[in-house]
Write a protein that binds this DNA or RNA. Structure first.
Lengths: 234, 234
DNA sequence: TGTACATCAGTGAACGCGCGTTCACTGATGTAC
DNA sequence: TGTACATCAGTGAACGCGCGTTCACTGATGTAC
């Protein structure tokens, strides 16, 4: 790795930004968040988002970022929040035209993968970057960004069960399982782009279809189940 | 992020290494690879593996690494090769006692997730780090590290189909789908450790069981399949 | 209407860090004569 | 057996880089009197 092969420095210097008028200092905050997302889009990679790169993209000194975010962690958390809202909106929009609960789940699955492939940088910061505590450590999960999108999925699963399209089970467990499947598809496609994958469409359909079909079938003999069965929480 | 919160510098300075005797220079190469893996284990994180950290762990100057590896990319590739061999061995060993082809697939799935959770650093460099060309760009997939493990999975799927335990289908597509499911489980568990997951055992069983059951059932109406069906390669 | 002053929205330069990589060098060791 | 020499297996110091973060500062602008 030559030093020159570092994360590509994106020359986004639109010149100096004009200083906000008095009382309008908050406008920089929004510009910073927008710039961070632009960097994610342009590079498709989280590494492109550094305090200095964001400051340069906005046309401001690095120190100015600290007027609105206590540290880089806080900035990234705020960006995550924005991205999660986009992500949730994309899934909700896709599911809006569903004809039945299974179609709903299919649409969500396809929209999920599509979002990840179309927004690799964004997908990376919300689902491929280890969140080890940081500033969200004390926030209960239900209040973290992303919780809403997850709740929507659980509800969709529950509707499918209520309609008899899926066998009754722990909707939370089933939703988590579906999430993991589509995440697996998305993240491997992003991480190993040169593997000879089947077409994305075929892959998503195959995986989701198999999963849903397995979830629709009547309970089979408890092959491979843990000793006492059920789905104990950790 | 305070500068002090950088990737934890692991104080592995076992003092100076004694210089190899003439003609035995190659021994350093193995020591370097072993040290890189030790760093992965200790930190559970790829970031801990830098040329300088490895050199320090071996007890040698950073420049000495370049006597055996042209650059960092080459070192990481070599580490990947080692890890893939361990990974494949773990899966083969787990599958060895299988009583039937479905049990075989279950055992592989469990061993896969177990490997990832027990070796997060190693899992990260083989499956969670983007391989965008680098020195493996020209190597055909069949010769890359990891190809063997994948081939073993495809063979196991084929055996299950031959035995009638899975409906006949493209074994490659089915294997890829299973891989993606277990990868999804493993990588989300590693990446979002603070999410309120169900127990790992329950999760793996649920996902794999649903998937295999869906793959065993007779073909359903082509709900959600791409226009012309089939599984076209990209 | 004029002026002193407080405050806001930043700037500029520096801090120390770890990184990958290069390059001139050194000292021990085996070998040819 | 002795000695000059080539080679091997490294070392040490430096290169330039980008990073997150801090801190003393500045200049425009609104406001109170």
């Amino acid at each position: 790795m030559a030093p020159a092969a570092r994360p590509p420095t994106i020359p986004t210097d639109p010149g100096r930004r004009v200083r906000s008028r008095r009382g309008e200092g908050e406008s920089l905050r929004e510009e910073v968040l927008a710039a961070a997302e632009r960097l994610l889009v342009a590079a498709g990679n989280e590494d492109a988002v550094s305090i200095r790169a964001v400051a340069a993209a906005v046309g401001v000194s690095p120190a100015a970022i600290y007027l609105h975010f206590p540290d880089k962690d806080a900035l990234m958390s705020a960006v995550c929040g924005r991205v999660f809202r986009m992500f949730d909106a994309a899934l909700e929009e896709a599911a809006a035209g569903a004809t039945d609960p299974i179609d709903d789940l299919f649409r969500r699955a396809r929209a999920y993968v599509r979002f990840g492939l179309a927004n690799p940088g964004q997908y990376q910061i919300i689902f491929l970057t280890k969140k080890e505590g940081g500033r969200l450590a004390d926030v209960p999960w239900e209040e973290r960004p992303g919780a809403e999108a997850y709740a929507h999925l659980v509800a969709a699963v529950q509707r499918a069960m209520d309609a008899g399209a899926l066998r009754p089970d722990d909707a939370d467990l089933v939703a988590t399982g579906l999430w993991m499947c589509v995440h697996g598809v998305t993240s491997l496609l992003l991480t190993l782009p040169s593997f000879p994958w089947p077409s994305v469409e075929a892959l998503v359909c195959h995986v989701v279809q198999a999963q849903l079909r397995g979830l629709a079938a009547p309970p089979a003999p408890a092959r491979g189940r843990p000793p006492r069965g059920g789905s104990p929480r950790a």
